[in-house]
């Protein structure tokens, strides 16, 4: 049964097109990852689904409620943790959570009880009565995520929950999210990191320029990239074009040269080890010295390259994570 249904969702901000006909379907009790670079339309999608924005066109239902006509009722059954930790630094962690409970129309006693539960669960009980401004970045993010759970939502929206966190805090947050999913919460997660979507999401939709350009499991998406990626960096940057000429034809589907870093990446399918050896041999034959060579998992950039033919480089982000209207050719 689908708990989120989106059909032909469109949204523009003046001349800027944020969503250009997005379709989504999310099954109950699953984690759905919305993957894309800055400005792809992920945040705008979340803001519409959480009733913060009205779409220009299209239909969206969450937990059976229309996001426009039944917004008030819908807000009782959803939770949202946005990109920035939305907490009041002057209040304690406990007060922040109690406040959110009151916004869900809970009685003061019930709000206090649930705040206590969340603080225990997110390992914040010891810091509960300290002002939130004294919390570390990871603690603030955990408190923010905890706040989105005080109302025990059926559907939880997490907008880039780990952006800006150090690796340790990111791993901790992933554990918490996995636990939530085990308990049956339906989760829509936006992220710029393929690894994050890979670890957490059952289904991933890749968004680019306001459209869903691919969807599937992480394995299915990676298969479209062609399995692993061979990454090569040469010591002498002036010889990058020469090195690219020698090895770009190795893989089953092209490759690319990053002009900023001088890195050459080639999708190599399941034949990584053999092609790595072959690349070393060819570069050695050309007398090109290697700085680094490795086989790695595909990144969002690799997925984008495979799906769109262009990299997911960060474009300047227009307001609300949007992009300029494309002109007709």
């Amino acid at each position: 049964m689908s708990v989120i249904e989106v059909e032909g969702l469109r949204k523009s901000f003046g001349e800027v097109v944020a969503l250009d006909g997005v379709d989504l379907e999310v099954a109950e009790g699953t984690v759905f990852g919305l993957l894309g670079p800055n400005g792809a339309g992920k945040t705008t999608t979340v803001r519409i689904l959480t009733t913060l924005l009205h779409p220009d066109a299209g239909l969206a239902r969450v937990a059976g409620y229309d996001v426009v006509r039944e917004a008030e009722a819908l807000r009782h059954v959803i939770g949202l943790a946005g990109q920035a930790a939305a907490i009041d630094p002057n209040l304690t962690g406990r007060e922040n959570l109690e406040m959110v409970g009151r916004l869900y129309h809970l009685s003061p006693t019930e709000a206090r009880r649930r705040a206590g539960e969340v603080l225990e669960r997110f390992d914040l009980a010891e810091a509960a009565d300290r002002p939130a401004r004294t919390y570390s970045g990871g603690m603030r993010r955990r408190l923010d995520l905890g706040a989105s759970l005080v109302g025990r939502p059926r559907v939880l929206f997490l907008d880039e929950p780990t952006t800006g966190l150090d690796p340790r805090s990111r791993l901790e947050l992933w554990d918490v999210i996995r636990e939530l999913v085990r308990e049956g919460t339906t989760l829509l997660l936006t992220t710029q990191y393929l690894e994050e979507a890979d670890r957490l999401a059952d289904v991933i939709a890749v968004v680019d320029r306001g459209r869903v350009i691919a969807r599937g499991t992480a394995d299915e998406l990676k298969a479209r990239v062609g399995g692993e990626v061979l990454a090569v960096r040469v010591s002498d940057r002036s010889r990058v074009p020469e090195a690219a000429g020698a090895i770009l034809g190795l893989g089953p589907g092209g490759g690319k040269v990053d002009n900023n870093t001088g890195e050459i990446t080639i999708p190599v399918g399941g034949d990584g080890t053999r092609l790595l050896v072959e690349a070393v041999r060819r570069l050695d034959a050309e007398g090109i010295e290697l700085a680094d060579i490795s086989l790695r998992r595909p990144t969002l950039d690799d997925v984008f390259l495979a799906l769109t033919g262009h990299a997911a480089e960060e474009a300047p982000t227009p307001p609300n994570g949007t992009r300029r209207r494309r002109r007709s050719p």
């Binding site: 913060l52 008030e72 009722a73 807000r75 706040a147």
Partner: peptide, 8 residues
């Protein structure tokens, strides 16, 4: 935005 996403 956080507050507005609640039933208020």
């Amino acid at each position: 935005a956080m507050v507005a996403a609640h039933p208020i």
